[in-house]
């Protein structure tokens, strides 16, 4: 909880300091990010399942990039 609050403060400070930044990758240079090959785990139903497998077999949890909510696996 304390870490979350500290991280939020650091993030807000960074954002305040960067408000004048010009985007250095122009919109017309971003077509690669719309390509399906750039999106790992692009299918939510498949991603949710494999993350379920990880959390059922491993002691670690969270920050997998997809979702939170914890694991009720005993």
């Amino acid at each position: 909880m304390r870490y979350a609050r500290c991280s939020l403060l650091v993030l807000l400070a960074c954002l305040a300091g960067c408000s004048g930044v010009e985007p250095w990758v122009k919109p017309y240079e971003r077509q690669n990010f719309a390509d399906l090959v750039m999106i790992a785990d692009r299918d939510p139903v498949s991603l949710a399942y494999i993350e379920h497998v990880y959390e059922a077999r491993e002691g670690a949890r969270g920050a997998l990039g997809g979702h939170g909510g914890g694991c009720g696996c005993n």
């Binding site: 059922a56 990039g65 997809g66 979702h67 939170g68 694991c71 009720g72 696996c73 005993n74």
Partner: peptide, 19 residues
């Protein structure tokens, strides 16, 4: 005994409504 709060993955990329 397997139970998991398996929420639908939240968007991690740009703010665009999912297809």
């Amino acid at each position: 005994m397997l139970a998991l709060a398996l929420a639908l993955p939240a968007p991690a990329r740009a703010a665009v409504l999912p297809d």
